[in-house]
Amino acid sequence: MARKRTSPFEDLVEVASKLPWWACLSLAAVSFAVLHVVASRPPMPVAGPEQIGEAAARGLVATMAMFGKYILAFAFSLAALISAINSLRQKKLYQRVEARKGTQALNEMGWEDFERLVSEYYRRSGFQVAREGGRGPDGGIDLTLRKDKETYLVQCKQWKAYKVGVKPVREFYGVMASRGAAGGYFVTSGEYTEEAKGFVRGTNLELVDGRKLREMIDAARTPSLSVERRKEVAVARPATPSPACPKCGAEMARRIARRGAQTGREFWGCSRFPKCNGARQIEDQGEKEPAPLSDPPTPDAPTQSMPTTKPCPRCNEEMRLRQFQSGSRSGQYFYGCTTCKKGWPADHHSS
Rank of each mutant, 00 (worst) to 15 (best):
K4A: 11
S7V: 00
E10L: 03
L12N: 03
L12I: 03
A16D: 00
W21N: 13
A23M: 06
A23Q: 08
C24M: 08
L25P: 06
F32N: 02
V38D: 05
V38A: 12
R41V: 11
P43I: 05
E54G: 11
A62R: 12
A62H: 04
F67H: 08
G68V: 00
G68A: 02
S77R: 02
S77D: 05
A80L: 00
L81W: 14
S83W: 05
L93N: 07
L93K: 03
N107K: 14
E108N: 05
E108K: 07
M109D: 09
W111T: 01
R116D: 14
L117K: 02
V118L: 03
S125W: 04
G134W: 11
G136S: 02
G139Q: 02
L143M: 04
L145R: 00
E150P: 03
L153C: 07
Q158E: 11
Q158C: 13
K163A: 12
G165Q: 06
G165H: 12
G165T: 05
P168Q: 01
V169T: 04
R170Y: 10
F172G: 00
F172T: 02
V175K: 09
V175Y: 14
M176K: 04
A181F: 14
A181R: 04
F186L: 03
V187P: 03
S189V: 01
R201M: 10
G210N: 00
L213Q: 06
M216E: 15
I217K: 04
D218H: 13
T222N: 06
P223W: 08
R230V: 06
V233M: 11
V233H: 10
R237T: 13
R237C: 12
R237S: 15
P243I: 01
C245N: 00
P246D: 00
A250G: 04
E251V: 10
R255A: 14
R255D: 10
R255S: 14
R258F: 12
T263S: 13
R265Y: 15
F267M: 03
W268Q: 05
C270T: 01
C276T: 10
N277G: 11
A279S: 13
Q281L: 14
D284P: 02
E287Q: 11
A291M: 06
L293C: 13
D300G: 15
P302Y: 10
P307E: 05
P307Y: 07
T309C: 07
T309F: 11
C315G: 09
C315H: 10
C315A: 01
C315S: 07
E317Q: 14
E318C: 02
R320W: 13
S330L: 11
S330D: 09
F334Y: 12
Y335A: 01
G336E: 07
T338I: 14
K341A: 15
W344C: 05
H349C: 01
H349A: 13
